[in-house]
């Protein structure tokens, strides 16, 4: 009983600010509502509309494409940085701070700066490319390049943050294990794949779960840099939801799309849980 009293306040917050809105969104997905008038009950009409809405499925495809660009690049880079900084080196702490700085900056401000950098005529990126004789493309107005640019901006921003968690994981691996391996004549490559990676699993699990969820919810960089364009090439599902709710004022349909995004994230996260559960996690604490 006492336990319930103790978790009471946070439980109330959880119910009021998470469960109630989720139920609210689900209920809203059964209505047609322009945010102002009286909502009209339409049953499953919004879900039927979704089935025939090519733009929504394009947005789902764009979202998956973004996650596929973002997560592997970000995770591998963060791991390499963490491995480098885990060695005892001069100025290691300075580098650690430098790598985390982009994460501390405001995404909207960064979006504006990177938009300048990728400007085809006056931008720094194409200027640098021209120095080595390459004519850079029109990055953000090209249907081919816009999404990779957005992904790279996010990789740049969040790699340092991911690196922090992996570095903490690396530092939790007891030195003796490596010493024992060295005595047994295990090569550096083998040490990485047989010791470091398996023992890093708890950190990797956390990093992947949170980053994948965050990637599926990509909004701000798209909002600032491309507004979903050119065409619909960077319209992620979350941006499409925003468009439907706050530009077209189709609140009911936007709620339906939000449910779809929620279900997608739930499925992918459950898959990750299953994958990691099958594998042993070592605990040194």
């Amino acid at each position: 009983m006492e336990a319930y009293l103790l978790i009471g306040p946070s439980l109330a917050g959880f119910l009021l600010f998470l469960v109630v809105p989720i139920i609210g969104v689900f209920a809203l997905s059964l209505f047609s509502w322009d945010l102002v008038g009286t909502p009209q009950f339409v049953g499953l009409a919004n879900y039927r509309r979704l089935a025939g809405d090519g733009a929504a499925w394009t947005a789902v495809g764009n979202t998956v494409y973004y996650v596929a660009l973002n997560i592997p690049a970000q995770t591998v880079l963060a791991l390499l940085l963490a491995l480098a900084l885990n060695r005892k080196m001069r100025g290691g702490k300075v580098f650690r701070v430098l790598f985390v700085l982009p994460w501390m900056a405001m995404p909207v401000a960064l979006g504006i700066i990177w938009t300048w950098a990728f400007d085809p005529r006056h931008g720094a990126v194409n200027h640098l490319l021209s120095l080595v004789g390459i004519a850079g493309p029109n990055w953000l107005t090209s249907t081919t390049w816009a999404m990779p640019v957005i992904a790279s901006v996010n990789v740049w921003q969040y790699t340092g943050y991911t690196m922090l968690f992996l570095l903490a994981g690396l530092q939790a691996i007891p030195e003796q294990i490596y010493e024992a391996a060295a005595v047994d004549g295990v090569s550096a490559v083998q040490r990485f794949f047989k010791i470091t990676l398996p023992l890093l699993r708890p950190s990797m699990f956390f990093v992947l779960i949170t980053n994948v969820i965050g990637s599926f919810q990509l909004f701000d960089t798209v909002f600032v840099m491309t507004q979903g364009g050119p065409g619909t090439s960077t319209t992620t599902l979350n941006y499409y939801i925003y468009q439907q709710a706050f530009q077209l004022f189709h609140a009911g349909y936007a709620a339906t799309l939000a449910i779809v995004l929620f279900a997608m994230i739930l499925l992918v996260t459950a898959g990750q849980f299953l994958y990691f559960r099958k594998r042993t996690v070592y605990d040194f604490s």
Partner: peptide, 16 residues
Amino acid sequence: MLKLTTRRFAATAACA
């Protein structure tokens, strides 16, 4: 990766 939309959306829904 700010959850701007979902949050605003949830706020609006909760408000409703």
